[in-house]
């Protein structure tokens, strides 16, 4: 593994992230819209369960959404790099495919975790109470989930060559992933086919891990669906699998 290459891939992403203010602003606008426009509206319709408002219930999901969009966006920038040629510079370098995948995965992790941390600052506004340990736990989970989704995004990017596929990915992969993640409704209340699809979605376990930490003692329909240990095991295992598969798919062309 080439740490110099991993470092510089992350540094490049971070530099661009800081430089493109509009990207940060629009990335942060999305969770705000969902929390305060969708969430607040739905709160009128959905009666609070277990002393929790609907806006509070979707907060872990919104953290997951923030990570989902920014990680996928960061990873499928590989498609842009392919289209504009820059990816060739990376592929022609004396750097293992594994380092490239890890470097790109960590790039997405850094920018996604920063955004998730900013969104997390909203918890007092929503009337949630979190202790320091919970905040640290949320941040650690955010890092793991970001890496998992970023590496999943890299895997996606290996299948596409041009940026026209961007809307395909957004509409047919990212949006369903968001709605089938337990972000907007508890998994245990879903009809069977949807529940199965939800269980196949990596993001589900990320959102569930956030629920486990943010609502630790909650019972009832709005509580977490799996144990925190299950969530973390699935996330780490999937991250590992995505890295290995993506690295293989980046091997030399025929």
């Amino acid at each position: 593994m080439e740490f110099n290459a991993i470092y510089v891939l992350v540094a490049r992403e971070f530099k661009k992230f800081v430089r493109e203010r509009s990207r940060l602003v629009s990335a942060l606008a999305r969770p705000l819209i969902w929390l305060f426009l969708v969430g607040a509206g739905m709160s009128r319709l959905v009666s609070p369960a277990g002393g929790m408002s609907y806006t509070q219930f979707i907060f872990p999901g919104i953290l997951g959404m923030t990570i989902l969009f920014s990680s996928i966006f960061s990873s499928i920038s590989i498609i842009w790099d392919k289209e504009f040629g820059f990816f060739k510079e990376i592929l022609a370098a004396p750097v293992s495919r594994l380092s490239i995948v890890i470097g790109k995965g960590l790039s997405g992790t850094v920018v996604s975790t920063i955004q998730a941390a900013i969104v997390l600052l909203l918890f007092p506004v929503l009337g949630l109470k979190l202790g320091l340990l919970q905040i640290i736990a949320v941040l650690i989970i955010a890092i793991a989930v970001s890496f998992c989704i970023s590496t999943f995004g890299i895997l996606l990017a290996t299948f596409y060559e041009s940026y026209e596929s961007f809307s395909v990915i957004m509409n047919f992969i990212v949006m369903p992933m968001f709605f089938l993640s337990g972000a907007m409704y508890p998994v245990k209340l879903l009809p069977k086919p949807l529940a199965v699809a939800t269980k196949l979605n990596p993001l589900t376990y990320g959102v569930d891990a956030f629920k486990n930490v943010i609502f630790p003692v909650e019972e009832g329909p709005m509580s977490a669906d799996f144990s925190l240990a299950t969530d973390m095991t699935v996330i780490l295992f999937l991250s590992f699998a995505f890295v290995v598969i993506a690295a293989r798919l980046f091997e030399r062309k025929k």
């Binding site: 110099n4 290459a5 510089v8 430089r19 504009f84 040629g85 820059f86 510079e89 004396p94």
Partner: peptide, 26 residues
């Protein structure tokens, strides 16, 4: 290698492109 089509990162400066390359090649 200098490829037929540009492989520069157009959103970085010239300096940053070269530094990126230097790190990439260790």
């Amino acid at each position: 290698i200098v490829f037929q089509d540009s492989t520069l990162d157009k959103d970085l400066t010239a300096y940053e492109n070269l530094v990126f390359h230097a790190y990439l090649y260790g």
